[in-house]
Computed example of a mutant assay.
Amino acid sequence: MFGSTRHALGRGLAPGRGLRRSLPADGSRGVRLRTTRPKAHSRRREPGYAALVQDEIYKKLFAFPRMVEDLMRGFAARGWAVTIDFSTLRKLPAEFVSDELLKRHGDTVWVARLRDGRHLLMVLEFQSRDDPGMALRILAYTSLLYQELLRNEAPVLDPGRRLPLVLPVVLYNGETPWRAANRLAALIQPAGRALVPYQPSQSHYVLDERHASEDDFPRQNLVTAMLHVERIDSPSDLVAAVDVLREWFRCPEDDDLRRAFTDWVRRIAQRLVPGGEKLAAQMTLEDMRMTVVERVSEWPKQWVREGREQGMREGLRQGIEQGIERGRAEERALLARMAASRFGAEAAERLSAVLAEVSDPERLGEVGEWLVRCDTAEELLARVSIVRTGG
């Protein structure tokens, strides 16, 4: 495991990203901060990708109690999670909530007993778009959920048939920062003192996944790992994420959750492989890591081929030269980011200076392999110096 990478991932920060704190204008709660993202090798999202993640991947991930517990401990209930008895955590039984209600309004509902005997409902909503009316939607769903619980005499009601507590959580993975208010009061016209007691009131927690600062992320938390996977933009990011997931999913009881993460990472890896090359659907994390490492050495050659093909189509020598140079520049940038991820910024800077003199795609491919296999920056730089001199 790479020391610098483990630290970055433990804090929830993918290598190579700069961050700027941005507090919500309405003072609402939740993790919402801006981040600057590198342009090289960015994993652009076509329309529908975020929705696919929400509907397929997130529902798989948050079908596991461990994910919900880490979400509560590290984020939504940080500071008071000790009051929740997580040994009682379970999905709200289907007999108490209709399928129609879940399909129309809620993604996932979990329930746990608090240590003082009360019950807490955790309502998870997965969003890919900023929704100005989210606070109203949350209120509507909470009301319908309460009606269902009363109608079905759910055991989460207390002896006086009082309703359980509720914690609504919105997990947002859109490209732009979340701006919508998380308090219903922000959607209602100001009330005079006489009318304030009669106005509906509710808040929800927002986790703005793609714009959050590592300062807000706990270590050794699976939701932190999820946020890092959400930010994968390059092969170096992917290799680092796979290393962390392999370390965390060592126990046999984690096999199902491991498979859910693996399927997600494989889909992302597929988008990073140039030329539409298909990755096997049943790849393990170990197989995926080795495949990415092997493919890195081949990508500069493919970029050169693509540049030549583009030049031939255009009938211009300039097109050939531009395509070849683009491949070289992109590969050098990728190798520098991988070096920063493994060995730190100083090693990356030294490597960049050496690579500026290397133009052979075969040689650049060898550097990509050594970046993963070398144990120290000194060993890497020594090998690269031999490459530069043609030894």
Rank of each mutant, 00 (worst) to 15 (best):
K278V: 13
G365Q: 04
A260K: 08
F126N: 07
R342S: 03
K103R: 13
A336V: 13
R90C: 10
P235H: 02
S359A: 14
R337D: 11
D216M: 09
D70I: 01
V296F: 05
A280V: 11
R250Q: 14
Q310N: 09
V296A: 12
M290L: 15
R219K: 10
R295L: 14
G344K: 03
R161V: 04
S201P: 02
M290S: 15
S385K: 14
Q310E: 11
M67F: 03
A81L: 04
G311C: 00
E175R: 15
A333D: 08
G16K: 03
A140Y: 08
A225P: 01
T376F: 00
L114D: 02
S201V: 09
R34K: 11
Y58R: 14
Q54F: 03
E125C: 00
Y205V: 04
D85K: 08
G315C: 00
S341P: 06
D233R: 13
G327H: 02
R193I: 07
K103T: 07
W80T: 07
Q318W: 05
A50D: 15
V111I: 12
T108W: 00
E298Y: 12
R20L: 10
E214D: 10
T284L: 01
P38V: 03
M226Y: 12
E95P: 04
L167F: 03
R34N: 11
P300F: 02
A377H: 06
A345R: 13
E379T: 13
T376N: 07
G27A: 06
R151M: 09
I320A: 05
A333K: 12
P361K: 00
Y205R: 07
I232R: 02
A329T: 11
R317T: 11
R179Q: 14
P274H: 05
G117N: 07
Y198W: 12
Q54C: 14
D70W: 00
R32N: 08
G368A: 15
R258K: 14
P164G: 06
Q54N: 15
R66T: 12
P168H: 06
L334N: 12
D130I: 04
A382W: 10
A186F: 01
F75E: 05
L380R: 06
T5Q: 13
E69C: 12
E100F: 00
N182G: 12
H105T: 10
L120K: 05
P15C: 09
G133H: 11
V358C: 06
T224E: 01
T5W: 04
G319T: 02
Q282V: 08
D116A: 11
Q127P: 00
